[in-house]
């Protein structure tokens, strides 16, 4: 039943895209408001996943682990902002790349010191380990449905936060006109720190949700970091809406690419060629998407600045 497979892949793509959005939302705001290229954003995702895994091991409660892990990661993110990143806002992009690259190295190695080189187990909580029958013929893992629900809930609350609150007004003002945000000066320093905290918390949440599906290990941050950057760039730097659209686009394209390109190619090409071309085409599909978007719209789909 192809359409069942299709539906399942849609859900997978949605789930991956929403998790990507959690990372990209913080990244795009930091990018847009502070004009900071933060390569260490993925490291916070890794730290969050490690913290949640450890706490859940120690306490036996996945929920408690998420609450504590997210809070702790948010605190770490804010500390990082105050201690290091704050000094980079007015520097050129090159210095930011170098400094946050250095942070990746430091955080990765520190993680190895604390948790060792073996991946950490993070299991799907027992109550969610089963499947749910969506339609006859489709049994979908319950945990993945929870991920989708959490992702949608966060996207909605972020939308509310940005569109309806005073904090959100400041954030939007900052993203569309950084000069103004800068002129407002010391008064909004706390805003930067707060945005960082929220961004770090979202990273940890994504780490906690994806940890049981992928592996909690050093290096997990860099892989997803690049995807998050691709998302931000496709959506347009500084635009939450762009990040949302971009994340779903990438989630769907990547999932569908991996599911259908290899088999599709096998139908039209000789098997030996298809076996090489399929996987490579599937894994570069999102980058092709990004190059295509930037070729036609060099500022991304939803440029935040006019």
């Amino acid at each position: 039943m192809t359409w069942l497979l299709f539906l399942e892949q849609c859900l997978n793509g949605l789930q991956f895209g929403l998790m990507l959005f959690l990372l990209a939302a913080g990244l795009t705001l930091i990018f847009g408001i502070m004009d900071l290229i933060n390569l260490a954003h993925g490291s916070l995702y890794m730290v969050g996943a490690y913290l949640v895994a450890s706490i859940s091991q120690a306490t036996g409660s996945f929920t408690l682990a998420i609450v504590l892990g997210v809070a702790a990661t948010a605190a770490i993110g804010m500390a990082l902002e105050v201690a290091v990143l704050r000094g980079l806002y007015r520097r050129d992009h090159l210095s930011q790349v170098l400094a946050t690259f250095a942070l990746i190295i430091i955080i990765n190695e520190t993680t190895r010191v604390i948790w060792g080189v073996q991946p950490l187990p993070l299991n799907v909580p027992g109550a969610l380990s089963g499947s749910v029958r969506l339609f006859p013929g489709i049994d979908y893992p319950a945990f993945r449905l929870v991920i989708i629900a959490v992702g949608l809930a966060v996207a909605l609350s972020l939308y509310f936060l940005v569109a309806r609150t005073r904090l959100g007004m400041l954030v939007r003002a900052g993203a569309s006109n950084r000069e103004m945000a800068m002129v407002m000066g010391t008064d909004i320093r706390w805003l930067f720190t707060a945005v960082f905290g929220v961004g770090a918390g979202l990273c940890a949440l994504a780490g906690a949700m994806l940890g049981p599906l992928l592996a909690v290990q050093v290096g997990m941050g860099e892989n997803i970091l690049i995807l998050a950057f691709v998302t931000v760039v496709i959506g347009g730097i500084g635009s939450i809406r762009g990040a949302f659209v971009g994340a779903l686009l990438i989630g769907i394209v990547d999932t569908f690419g991996r599911a259908f390109i290899p088999t599709g190619l096998r139908a039209v090409l000789s098997p030996s060629v298809a076996d090489v071309a399929g996987p490579s085409l599937a894994s570069i599909s999102i980058y092709l998407l990004m190059v295509g978007v930037l070729f036609w719209k060099p500022q991304g789909l939803f440029p935040a600045r006019g």
Partner: peptide
């Protein structure tokens, strides 16, 4: 765990010897 020191040196370059 030498990479921690390496990272700190790079950070130092950014802030003190751009």
């Amino acid at each position: 765990h030498w990479q921690i020191v390496l990272g700190l040196v790079l950070l130092g370059v950014v802030f003190y010897a751009p």
